[in-house]
Amino acid sequence: MSNLNIMIVGVGGQGTLLASRILGDVALSSGLDVKVSEVHGMAQRGGSVVTYVKMGEKVYSPVIEKNEADIILCFEKLEALRWIDHAKKDATIVINNQRIDPMPVIIGKAKYPEDIINKIKADYNNVVDVPALDLAKKCGNTKSVNVVMIGVMAQHSQIKKDVWVKAIEKTVKPQFLEVNLKAFEAGFNYVAGK
């Protein structure tokens, strides 16, 4: 059996680390070998961040490279574009349609690419386009974008819903549990195009 490779890409501050912790916990309950590779430190300050989650009978390198990802959770559109080469042709690519301008765009030295999601859809068949920020807002906290994304991913996974819920309960702080469970449901029940 080959490994299952999942990437989470986004912008520092979007809560990708928490998402990877939840995913790691779910992976652990599968009984398989698991490795999760994260980014800390300077790059986290509003920079491009990527987390790799790999599971399988035996995982060596914690890093997912070009054409190796089965699933990519993209917390931001530009980051989806940046990491798309890592996706397998049949990968599931979940993209939060949020736009966060990087500093070169903010100061006018670069242009934010247009129509990113459609460009990716033209090359990949399994692209899920999610208004995760709107969904998170409806749940009462824009910070719960990460758990909305986890919800969407859970919907597309073979893993039972209660495993995901348990992982969230274990990972998030008690005072934020309610809003995060709501966010998970919002993602889990999200139907593209609606």
Partner: peptide
């Protein structure tokens, strides 16, 4: 390892910033 898609557009860099 070659890329397998037709996407040619470069993503502008996203350096870390002061919060």
């Amino acid at each position: 390892v070659e890329k397998t898609n037709e996407i040619t557009e470069e993503a502008p860099v996203r350096p870390p910033v002061l919060c």
